[in-house]
Design a protein around this nucleic acid. Structure first.
Lengths: 194, 194
DNA sequence: GTCTATATACAGATAGAC
DNA sequence: GTCTATCTGTATATAGAC
């Protein structure tokens, strides 16, 4: 399948629409016709760009992960200290959620993992691994610089932090007034400061 | 709609099957025919017990929440100290997840909240509220007894703990070798001990 | 790249017999 | 409480013209 960096403008509009639908309703909750209506073309034109629904969702997840990694690099440039980097990281989730309670693409797809085509599920696991790897790196540095508590170990803290952010979006979607990702991240981080 | 405590044996078998399907694939990922095949009857017989799919999912969520609250009461009886209660609470999630990586019914439905019938979404929010209320109560007591750190406030810690458990199930579903709910809960709790 | 038309399967739901 | 038969809508996907 074509990489999103080589896609036509039309194909990218399809990916845009599918991304929003996945964030709102999940893989099993949207159809090619939903995408077609959003883009303003007919259903078979979607198949021209993405032969199967799995191909389309894979492209959405690939681009989402790619953009996320770009933002992680930006955080590294803009913030030097680990606590600031982790706060900025939480802001990525908060910004997604602030737009009509949209979920993380891969949080939603992760919940649906057992009913996803293999290619999509694989992209989702790549997203999570990229995130926990980056978080573990940032937390390890923070521990070395004595900005963060030395225990528990960085990888455990990274897994827990990602889980907290993904879970916060899901809970806050259902409970009015619940703390969103930025709120729970602040709580979590305050227990981590050295 | 009938309360699950007054349902026939056949209706409860339908609820059992639907519960497992929701945990595996979500509301938008199963059909009346899937339920019928699991129970060993035909599709219209499901409609005899639950007129609509929303009614069925509502019954599943109601019973799930009811059973969960029963288990919270049991934890209060079996464990006196807040840290032990919170560990036992995490074990509820771990036990669910240990069975074929099943998700929390309301974690899954919470992700799908925007494509659920109103009645189902309402039950999901009731589940989350019951959980954060109970957790806040337990954590408040633990803070008073100086078993848990006094800051951040109990409600914030409760929200973050629930989010962590729900998120851990979703992430661990996609990443082989990732820490499940018991693992991340242990990490989280170790940062909370006084 | 987009369209109309169509194939095929399955969805949720209902009617009415047993 | 369960069944067969059916309705109606929609799903993913394909064929082939423009």
């Amino acid at each position: 399948m074509k990489h999103f960096s080589e896609m036509s403008e039309s194909a990218l509009r399809v990916v845009d629409a599918a991304e929003g639908l996945i964030q709102e309703r999940g893989y099993n909750g949207f159809s090619y016709d939903d995408v077609a209506k959003l883009v303003g073309i007919k259903k078979p034109s979607i198949h021209h760009h993405f032969a199967t629904k799995g191909d389309l969702a894979t492209a959405v997840a690939q681009r989402y992960t790619h953009r996320f990694r770009e933002q992680l690099l930006r955080i590294e440039v803009q913030h030097a200290r680990a606590p600031d980097r982790l706060t900025a990281y939480a802001t990525l989730f908060e910004n997604t959620f602030a737009a009509e309670h949209r979920l993380c693409v891969c949080g939603m797809l992760g919940a649906e993992a057992k009913s996803l085509p293999d290619g999509v599920a694989h992209e989702v696991s790549r997203f999570f691994e990229a995130n926990t790897d980056w978080l573990a790196m940032v937390i390890t540095e923070g521990q070395r610089a004595q900005q963060l508590r030395a225990q528990p170990e960085a990888r455990a803290l990274a897994d827990a932090f990602l889980a907290t952010l993904e879970g916060a979006m899901i809970v806050a979607r259902s409970v009015r007034g619940a703390r969103g990702p930025a709120g729970v991240a602040q709580t979590y981080l305050s227990t981590l400061l050295a």
